[in-house]
Design a protein around this nucleic acid. Sequence first.
DNA 1: ATTGACAACATGTTAAGACAAGTATACACG
DNA 2: CGTGTATACTTGTCTTAACATGTTGTCAAT
Lengths: 257, 257
Amino acid sequence: MKALSASKARRFVQKSGASPVYRQVADLLARDMQHGVSRSERTALPSENELAAEFKVSRVTVRQALDELHRKGLIYREKGRGSYARSQHIGGVTGFGSFTSEVENAGSKPTSRFIDLVKVASLPAGIKIHLAKTLPKDKNYHCLTRVRCVDSKPVAYEETYLDTETYPGLERADVEKGSLYATMRRLWGYQPAWADAAIEPGVADEVIAKHLGIKVGAPVVIAWRVTSSEQDEVLEYVKAIYRGDGFVLTVRRHKIS
Amino acid sequence: MKALSASKARRFVQKSGASPVYRQVADLLARDMQHGVSRSERTALPSENELAAEFKVSRVTVRQALDELHRKGLIYREKGRGSYARSQHIGGVTGFGSFTSEVENAGSKPTSRFIDLVKVASLPAGIKIHLAKTLPKDKNYHCLTRVRCVDSKPVAYEETYLDTETYPGLERADVEKGSLYATMRRLWGYQPAWADAAIEPGVADEVIAKHLGIKVGAPVVIAWRVTSSEQDEVLEYVKAIYRGDGFVLTVRRHKIS
DNA sequence: ATTGACAACATGTTAAGACAAGTATACACG
DNA sequence: CGTGTATACTTGTCTTAACATGTTGTCAAT
């Protein structure tokens, strides 16, 4: 078991600066582990006291950094022994979060083909069945339909439902290009933070088959998703249909209970 | 906006006791919110200082409790304003963690029909493709096949692959009844902590159709899962095939980025 | 009536110290 | 040689304290 280097005062964190110190420490450690962990043997981190001395911060700050890495699943900790790096896995599309950023993280090029943007008077039935037992009475929604592509190959057909009262002036926003999440943040200040999702299998009908370039009756995954802000405001309802050939959805590093 | 009660010294935490104080505080607050939040309006919690006074603990301890609730998605916090309860959603089967406990949490009765337990010399191909790029060379595995049922209705066909070196004497363990996770913990001290999963659509073949009571060619969801301990030891590889009628998998309260 | 300064709150961050409890190792004792 | 203990580590928990920073309402000046 080889230990990561703990050379003294190697790098510095800026105390009165942009981001909190504990996050700077966490980022530095995460970067170390990405470069240092190639073998399968588990690698020990310096102890909390050593890290505190190295970065010239208190142990509380070091613990905040390590707790953050632990929550992300990058390290595990053993009382009385030390903290250890977990072997890293490669990225994948999880079906949550921004399609754009996720595909970029996986190392591919995400594109979207705009289909249309219309107004509808209700949500699709599946959302209510699966996720939102207590929906408000039917309201008006923008329905944004897009085909999501990875490296120019269509992988998903996606209908996004956006409350017309929540997004005034959406028609004039340039949703045809760029990330919808980026637009939501820029124009209305909304930041997606939580997602509840339901997944079920299905088969492609004529419309889906045409858009995804697959045969009618081919297996697909239907994902229903409700995205909310940190403040518990519903930001969007999504019905996404993923094609079934090749891998589809990976749920990575999911904490059990 | 109604505030949860903050009556003084209403309940007590035991300082030198079973569980850490911050967890006792978190559990008490979680219970309060379950009972107190019925309306859709957002509910404010007492401030950190008020909670510290109420439970007679330091503010740091209160913050540890609130951070835990925040990570679980039960509350959200706003700098300068306060902490607020998030509206609770009902439970569902997530496809991760113990099937037994998850179905029980959802309020149904989980059962398993044992099919067989045999030795195989390699893992199914899908696992390698989706999740484990760097598998050790083929080893021997126990292959435990079960049909998982909710309220006596079959919902999933599941093959669990367990390393023969990791689980010596598994043949003599009573895996035909009870939770496999409970057996793993009791006999070998293993505790599942993390899961990586991949999901893809498929159609039922003859074997699957017979076991799940559906028609050949009916849509199903195939879930590949690798479960690991906190210490990064692989505990099991699972291939699960879920039937497609009715809801299947819900991924609840998933934090984005 | 509107505005601006200010005080009183809230949570976020960081420090320094203390004790508890689990782990590993050296070392004396049998 | 084996064993048990003392000791020096480690992370886990908790306290008191301080300052930073964002929010809200009061109140006086305009």
